[in-house]
Design a protein around this nucleic acid. Structure first.
Lengths: 184, 184
DNA sequence: CAGCTTAAAGCAAAGTTCTTGCTTCACGAG
DNA sequence: CTCGTGAAGCAAGAACTTTGCTTTAAGCTG
């Protein structure tokens, strides 16, 4: 039974907060379940029973963190919207802390939906921008194309080629998506 | 000091083998350092000192596993080569065991180069195909374009949208890369 | 080839984390 | 108000991890 306002919700909140705080204070490698439990004012067994292990908990916190809190800002034109969004995406995700969040999100249980939720968040944001473009009568690609041509390449570099990532690269991807191939 | 033929090498070999065997026999969730150590005939402290923890060891084994052992087969034409390679990539990587290997590879120490090595392996294979195409006088994209337009989208789906992945999708990506946008 | 040097492995004890059965608590329903 | 139920607390035992010291063996030197 879901008890949104009850003790369970308070515990979840306290534990998530403890993870975020301790991650800043002591760093990832020192983070342990007993440590989080103490900070959150619960017993370790509560965490083990509810999340299973530290990875699962971190994955939960990461997905929570990656959820966008505002719609992407509008710049009056699809290319500017996408450009700005991709820029911000890189800014947030390519830092060590951003990469850690993405990795954590991926580390949850393989059959869970944590990873899928990350992609869904991106898709949501993109849909908002595409809908605005359609309303303005602009020619717009579909969500899948944006995921394949812009999000996927950025994510690939974040995960597999850290370092090879700049705002210029994001701009290039958006331009190639909207205008077709360009010389690099 | 590296002692390639010595005891260190034998231990590494034994431990890697133990991991691979036990992964099949008992499954990932039952895999522990002491278990691997026993099977490999070493003490747990050897593994802890050398790899740090189970994640790092699994990451090592995964990267090893992902290393291609043969050059991509030649089909006489770039589009066929890429098509075949992408098809095989999806076949190997989209299964639960393939996804596990990729996730494990990503799970190594963030500042290590395990993830980068995965990407380098793919780049190597692609370079071989592109070089063959150039030799035949075909028009060929550069490696970056193949990584961005074919590898990255496949990897994105493997990691973030498991299920949305078929050989047809791989074909589509290759076609769009070589022939420009098509209607989906 | 014998002896030396040294990186890595073995061992064992101490410390920490993880699991689990049982008890207690508190929200929500009747 | 009382009851039912799912979640949290507690505590003991098991398992895993860390660490200082000892031993082994690969590679170098004479």
């Amino acid at each position: 039974m879901v008890r949104p306002g009850g003790r369970s919700a308070r515990v979840q909140e306290a534990v998530h907060t403890a993870v975020r705080e301790l991650q800043e204070e002591v760093g990832r490698s020192e983070l342990t379940v007993p440590l989080v439990a103490t900070r959150a004012g619960v017993t370790p067994s509560t965490i083990y029973r509810r999340w299973g292990d530290l990875q699962e908990l971190l994955s939960d916190v990461a997905v929570e963190h990656l959820r966008p809190d505002t719609p992407p800002p509008s710049h009056g034109h699809l290319s500017a919207d996408l450009r700005g969004w991709a820029e911000q995406f890189i800014e947030e995700m390519s830092s060590p802390v951003g990469r850690t969040y993405i990795r954590d999100a991926l580390l949850g249980h393989p059959d869970g939906d944590n990873a899928a939720r990350c992609s869904a968040y991106a898709a949501e944001q993109i849909e908002v921008m595409l809908a605005r473009a359609a309303k303005r009568g602009e020619d717009a690609p579909d969500v899948e194309a944006v995921l394949d041509r812009v999000v996927a390449p950025m994510m690939y570099r974040i995960l597999f080629r850290p370092g090879d990532l700049t705002a210029d690269y994001a701009h290039l991807l958006v331009r190639e998506l909207l205008d077709g191939p360009t010389t690099r």
